[in-house]
């Protein structure tokens, strides 16, 4: 019969303690997320109503709803994704499937990493210089979207590169081996199998840009507009900017208003992110190898 020595018993205890410590840490990470939503809900509850979501702000933004800010956020996110998604995916495809591992490629990769680390307010200044002034777009939805797109590019490129790398190299070799061209291999082997990962990255980028404030500050977002944007050359209001405005710049806003606005913003981002999670889980069950 096997009798565990005192060393083995100690080992078991250490194992257990370590596991418990890890689960504690993980649990504490979960708390702030839950706490924020709970707190926002408690504080913002009095303002929440259908009208709050569907009406314009009135009386100098101290009453009414936040409808225009939702519309503005929607516009900015949609256009920025339409711009950054194809550009990012194509750039990643080039880097992963075509570029030789030379000096230039390494510089490009480094540049992408650095771009991801640039603070968003610097992106805002870049957008102001490049899109608003140089390309003469003016402060507009278009300029703000482009700024957001530039900010999202490194995120999308990096996540796409990861998804492309997740497709085993042997699949590509097998495809080349039977006389398929590089383009055919990308079209029929690489892309279909990395699409879930690429989509997930894009959806996370959407969530990120929905909450962005600084990057759109000088390029197309307005404190208050009495009308909804009609074209992409108009300015717009956004949830994130509106939250900043009514929390710090306007006197006489009911306490519940900023909290309710923050809640709407957070729920919006969470729902977008959960789409990403659902997509990923769905495709994982359909994983083909």
């Amino acid at each position: 019969m096997f009798n565990p020595s005192i060393h083995l018993l100690n080992k078991e205890i250490r194992e257990k303690n370590f596991k418990n410590a890890l689960s504690m840490v993980t649990f504490f990470l979960f708390l702030p997320a839950l706490g924020i939503i709970f707190w926002l809900f408690i504080k913002g509850y009095p303002a929440l109503s259908w009208d709050f979501l569907t009406l314009d702000p009135i009386n100098g933004m101290t009453a009414g709803g936040i409808f225009p800010t939702i519309v503005g956020t929607f516009w900015l996110v949609m256009i920025s994704v339409l711009v950054s998604c194809p550009l990012g995916v194509l750039a990643a495809l080039y880097l992963s499937e075509y570029a030789k591992d030379g000096k230039l490629t390494r510089i490009i990769r480094l540049a992408i990493l650095n771009l991801a680390g640039v603070p968003s307010i610097v992106h805002a200044l870049f957008g102001l210089g490049a899109f608003v002034l140089f390309m003469k777009m003016g402060t507009s939805i278009l300029a703000a979207s482009f700024t957001l797109a530039v900010m999202n590019l490194p995120v999308i490129i990096t996540s796409t590169l990861e998804s492309l790398k997740a497709v085993p190299h042997s699949f590509r070799e097998a495809s080349w081996n039977v006389g398929a061209s590089k383009l055919q291999t990308i079209r029929y082997i690489v892309l279909p199998n990395s699409l879930p990962g690429i989509l997930t990255g894009v959806v996370f980028a959407v969530g990120r840009s929905a909450g962005e404030t600084a990057a759109i500050l000088f390029t197309g977002v307005a404190f208050y507009l009495p009308f909804l944007p009609q074209t992409v050359f108009d300015q717009c209001m956004t949830l994130s900017m509106h939250l900043f405005t009514i929390s710090t710049q306007v006197v006489g806003v009911p306490v519940s208003y900023p909290y309710a606005t923050a809640l709407v913003l957070i729920l919006l981002i969470l729902s977008v992110n959960s789409v990403a999670v659902v997509l990923r889980t769905y495709f994982r069950t359909k994983r083909k190898w």
Binding site: S170, F171, E173, A174, S175, W176, N177, V178, G179, A180, S181, I189, P192, N193, K288, W289
Partner: peptide, 22 residues
Amino acid sequence: EDSTFLRRRVGMVSPLPVGLPM
């Protein structure tokens, strides 16, 4: 320049089996 036609004429079986994900 294009080697795809060559690869159709010269088939290859690699040591480790690769079923394409289809």
